[in-house]
């Protein structure tokens, strides 16, 4: 177990310990006295898989830990807008694939008094050493990033809370020139489940 996995496990364990109390004491997210700014920091288990439009090879799923930070402005009781950074390093036998997603996001709470939320956004992703199975050469690329996700926010105090989330990031890289060949229309999908601390 790597140090990142340990951190994620510790975070989730802390969340599981605190969540029941948080659920009981959950105040309305729309409290008029609270700040309109919000910040979330946490970790996630992530699985990633690269693929391309015409590839016949069945590329493997790779698993690892990730770090997520997002924050922004609460527009109203149901809507937050802001930015998100999601960093996913994955170790492979040939090296490490590091992907960073920078997205503008909007969070929507269908029920203003509940913690359930839906999230969507778009931005850019930066990928280093992308999909080593394609070749030994290091590949760095920018990509179009899109994220969709959902989760639940539990509030322990008026300003501090915990959040569990599941999300799917996609990084569309375009064509990749490797040492062996050009790989057309490469797309990476990143699935993640995690938890974070919320400050409002």
């Amino acid at each position: 177990m790597t140090w990142r996995i340990r951190i994620v496990v510790a975070g989730i364990a802390a969340f599981i310990t605190l969540a029941p109390a948080a659920a009981v004491a959950q105040p309305s997210p729309a409290n008029a006295e609270e700040s309109r700014l919000w910040l979330v920091a946490g970790g996630a288990f992530a699985a990633l898989r690269g693929d391309c439009q015409t590839c016949e090879e069945d590329y493997p799923y790779r698993k690892g830990g990730g770090v997520l930070v997002n924050g922004g402005y609460r527009v109203n009781a149901r809507m937050d807008v802001g930015g998100e950074v999601f960093w996913i390093p994955v170790d492979t036998t040939e090296g490490r694939i590091r992907t960073t997603h920078w997205d503008a996001v909007a969070q929507f709470r269908p029920w203003a008094s509940k913690g359930f939320f839906l999230k969507g956004g778009a931005g850019m992703a930066y990928v280093r050493n992308w999909v080593d199975v394609l070749g030994q050469q290091s590949v760095n690329s920018k990509a179009l990033s899109v994220v969709v996700g959902t989760g639940w926010e539990f509030r322990t105090t008026r300003r501090i809370g915990l959040q569990i989330f599941g999300s799917q990031h996609v990084g569309a890289l375009g064509d990749l020139q490797t040492a062996d060949a050009e790989i057309p229309d490469v797309v990476g999908n990143f699935w993640s489940v995690g938890a974070g601390v919320v400050i409002r």
Partner: peptide, 8 residues
């Protein structure tokens, strides 16, 4: 399982 792709 597949995730997002571009369509034709």
């Amino acid at each position: 399982q597949q995730g997002w792709v571009w369509d034709l």
